[in-house]
Structure formats: structure tokens, C-alpha cells
């Protein structure tokens, strides 16, 4: 289970929105294979159920004024009329 073939790595890169070159992919496959092999013992560990985290801190439903859009739009790679601008696309999810 510790070897990562190039096809798997390509799928991972697509999922992570990364496009390493073929040479980089080959090197990364070797790195990941070596790292996972060294970590193999982990996969044999029985391990109890993870601890449940504590109850989360909550806040009251009080709206506060938002940031001035100028404070962050100016740092955006592209913006127009108060919107962030990206290449034309369709899709999404909720």
C-alpha cells in the first residue's frame, strides 16, 4: 500500500489543484512512496477510537458591521464593481 503510482499521484494533484511537471511527479511519487513506507507501522496500529473533542465555544447571534470592502478588494488579483473577478465558468456545489 505504500507505493504511489503516477496515475494515483496525478489524480491527487488534480484534486489538490496542482500541476507539477512530469519530472516533478516522478520525483514526488518516489518521495511519497518512501515516506509512506517508513510510516507503514502506523497502518498496522490497532488504535482506539479518537478522543472526542470538547464542546465547542459558541457566539451570540449579534451581527457586527463587516469589513470595508476596500480593505480587501484592493488586495484581490482582479476586482470590478465590488466583485471579485475570475475567468468565466459555470458549476459549483452546495
Amino acid at each position: 500500500m505504500s507505493s504511489v503510482d503516477l496515475e494515483t499521484l496525478r489524480t491527487l494533484a488534480t484534486l489538490a489543484r496542482l500541476t507539477p511537471s512530469d519530472a516533478e511527479l516522478t520525483r514526488l511519487a518516489a518521495d511519497l512512496g518512501r515516506i509512506l513506507e517508513a510510516f507503514e507501522a502506523l497502518a498496522q496500529a490497532p488504535g482506539p477510537r479518537p478522543d472526542e473533542p470538547p464542546a465547542t465555544r459558541t457566539r451570540a447571534d449579534r451581527p457586527v458591521p463587516a469589513l470595508d470592502p476596500e480593505a480587501f478588494l484592493a488586495a484581490a488579483p482582479a476586482h470590478e464593481g465590488g466583485f471579485f473577478v475570475v475567468p468565466r465558468t459555470v458549476g459549483g456545489e452546495t
Binding site: A78, E80, G81, G82, F83, F84, V85, V86, P87, R88, T89, V90, G92, E93, T94
Partner: peptide, 19 residues
């Protein structure tokens, strides 16, 4: 769950994003 923002596709050549 939290909602996503809004992507607007019908104004001009680009997609506009409102969060």
C-alpha cells in the same frame, strides 16, 4: 452547514464573485 458565495455568469466576459 455554511452556504457558498454567489458566482454571477451573465454579466460580461468574466465570472463575478460576491461573498
Amino acid at each position: 452547514e455554511e452556504d457558498a458565495g454567489k458566482a454571477i455568469h451573465d454579466r460580461g466576459a468574466h465570472t463575478l464573485v460576491d461573498l
